[in-house]
Design a protein around this nucleic acid. Structure first.
Lengths: 205, 205
DNA sequence: GTCTATAAGCTGATAGAC
DNA sequence: GTCTATCAGCTTATAGAC
């Protein structure tokens, strides 16, 4: 990336610091002072990069949010239902692994949820859209609940500090397999349950 | 209950109000002023019932916590592994349904998690103990992750406002069936998946 | 870009009247 | 039991020097 300036580096370090503190203390339990101290600067320096705390919260969530939307767009373009399901699931798991604690915040922290609502004017309902991709538009109660348990469970368990020691590929494969199993998708050869490691292409129906 | 005084009523209304606000704003995002306003009293009145905010947080969590420990004790006294699993699972689901949003906070809100750590001096590790009941002492990675996804998913999805319209019995039966299915337990006759409603005894091996 | 200094307002918490 | 009044400290946020 040739466009990296010192300011952009500080900005991205600030967002990484904010994410870390948000997941440790919650958005409501994190002050700008805490972020500034952790970064080693003053509060005023933080305000140079972001006008408000809300703006920081929205900026923390934005990249993963945009990716999530892109993954769901992609999944909807798949032709078979099986491919749609696998694509949506692997896209979601991929984000959990890449952003770790952030997707867990999407599923539980009121501060992040409000920031998302603000930045999208409440237009999108991610949980509903993802659930539709996984179990169709009019699931019965048991199926809808299964999808909700799966989405929240993957995000929270995958983003938990307990799994911080796992490398991305291992975590990804295992979470994907748990999802497929809960959704009643057919078994793949060399699945994590038998092997502990496998390459994961999400294209196949 | 013959011991109910006006003070006890105010105290319990206060805890109910605190729980509601905690689940809407997070513990860190809830002030004593918000609790007092919602109750229709002043902050000073709140301080008559509890010395500190930490004390309120601990008191909100305490009843469900004690019940959870009791349910796990009970489950450990079951003789067959199958009965242990069903007992632990049904006990957990029962608490999710009865306390709704509170068990979700146990699984995600840093403020509640810290309150639990404080009131137990960090002696108990609930997630580890419950996981051991469900999948044994030395599960492989895939199995341990499955249990973690299940526990977090049940709590968050069950406590979500999206499920607030479901009556206790319906929610209980469906969450229990999802748990049994994820843990690979044999199918029961008249399960929620087929029937949408069934009586649930957790004793059978 | 980061700093010091400052502002208005909210926080958790206490003292004492009724 | 609940109130008013008050506290020191922290909060978000701004102005202006370097």
């Amino acid at each position: 990336m040739s466009g990296d300036t010192v300011a952009e580096d500080t900005r991205s370090r600030l967002l990484a610091t904010a994410l870390k503190l948000f997941s440790e203390h919650g958005v409501g339990g994190t002050s700008l002072q805490m972020i500034a101290d952790e970064l080693g600067v003053t509060k005023a320096a933080v305000y140079y990069h972001f006008k408000t705390k809300d703006e920081i919260t929205e900026a923390v969530a934005a990249p993963a949010l945009q990716e999530l939307i892109a993954r769901m767009d992609e999944a909807e373009r798949q032709r078979t239902r099986g491919a749609q399901i696998d694509h949506a699931l692997s896209g979601f798991v991929d984000l959990i692994v890449r952003y770790r604690s952030l997707i867990a915040l999407f599923n539980s922290d009121p501060g992040i949820i409000r920031a998302i609502d603000r930045s999208l004017n409440g237009v999108e309902n991610f949980a509903a859209r993802m659930r539709k991709l996984l179990v169709g538009p009019d699931p019965d109660l048991a199926t809808a609940l299964t999808a909700n348990v799966l989405l929240a469970g993957l995000a929270l368990a995958g983003g938990s500090p307990e799994q911080a020691h796992l490398d991305d590929e291992t975590l990804r494969v295992h979470l994907f397999d748990i999802g497929r199993r809960m959704l009643g998708r057919p078994k793949r050869r060399g699945s994590a349950r038998a092997e502990g490691s496998a390459s994961m292409g999400a294209q196949g129906a």
